Simulated assay, not measured.
Amino acid sequence: MTITEVSQKYDMPQDTLRYYERIGLIPRVNRNKSRIRDYTEEDCKWVEFIKCMRGAGLPIEVLIEYVGLFQQGDETVEARKELFIEQRNQLVARMEDMKNTLERLDYKIASYEQKVVEKEKELRRSGE
């Protein structure tokens, strides 16, 4: 696949794909005879993985560390697992914070809705 096709498939700017390749988040993509990037299925799996992890808020630095560990082979399985456990715990904490914020927003919205209803009743009474 070309970078244009990958960009469209994963809804990711081409500049981001180039950046991720440059910093080592995705492996160096092979190029065809015309020097155009030619993404393999394996390359696309990396793009999808990184997009998922970034979407969940994992920092680029952590993902670079993960990719480095992955490239070292099976002797880093435990380190990769620990890295993901730590990131999972942080994600759970962020989700809890977001849940609390959502509940607070819902409360505020409900209180404003109540004020709007009261104001409308007041206007109807004054217009009678």
Score class of each variant (00 low, 15 high):
S126I: 15
E118K: 09
T40D: 07
E41S: 10
I3Q: 07
S7M: 05
E42R: 10
E103H: 13
K99P: 05
N32Y: 00
N32C: 04
V62Q: 02
R18L: 09
L102P: 01
L69A: 01
E78W: 05
R18Y: 06
L25K: 06
G57E: 13
R31F: 05
P27L: 02
E86L: 07
K119W: 06
D106M: 11
R124F: 10
N30Q: 14
P59S: 10
Q72T: 07
R18G: 04
F84D: 00
A93K: 15
E78I: 11
T76D: 06
V67Q: 01
S126F: 12
I36Y: 04
L123V: 15
R124V: 11
D74V: 10
F49R: 08
E48S: 11
F70P: 00
L91P: 07
R35Y: 11
V62D: 01
E122Q: 15
Q72A: 05
E86K: 13
K99H: 12
R88D: 05
L91N: 10
R94S: 12
D97T: 15
E103Q: 14
R124L: 15
L25C: 07
E78A: 07
G127Q: 15
P13Y: 03
T101Y: 14
I60P: 03
L63I: 11
Q14Y: 00
F70T: 06
K108Y: 12
R28C: 08
R31V: 05
D15N: 11
Y66D: 01
I50R: 04
N32W: 02
Y19H: 15
Q14T: 11
K9E: 15
T40A: 04
T4H: 04
I36E: 02
T2S: 14
C52G: 04
R31E: 06
T16L: 00
Y66T: 08
Q72N: 09
E120A: 06
E78V: 11
E128F: 10
I109C: 01
D38L: 04
E48T: 05
K33I: 02
Y107N: 03
Y19S: 04
T16K: 08
K115Q: 14
R28T: 11
I3W: 08
E128P: 03
K108G: 02
E82T: 08
V92E: 13
Y19P: 03
A110M: 08
R88L: 06
P27K: 06
E82S: 06
T4L: 00
L69G: 02
C44K: 00
G68M: 08
D15M: 07
N30K: 12
E118V: 05
E75G: 04
L63H: 04
E86V: 07
A56Y: 14
D74E: 13
E5L: 11
R18V: 09
T101W: 10
G55A: 01
E96P: 01
V117T: 14
K121A: 06
E42L: 08
F84H: 03
R125N: 12
Y66R: 04
E103L: 14
N30A: 11
E78G: 02
R31Y: 05
A56C: 12
L17D: 03
S126N: 15
K119V: 03
Y112W: 08
Q71E: 13
G68P: 05
F84M: 15
Q72K: 12
A56D: 06
M95C: 10
G57M: 13
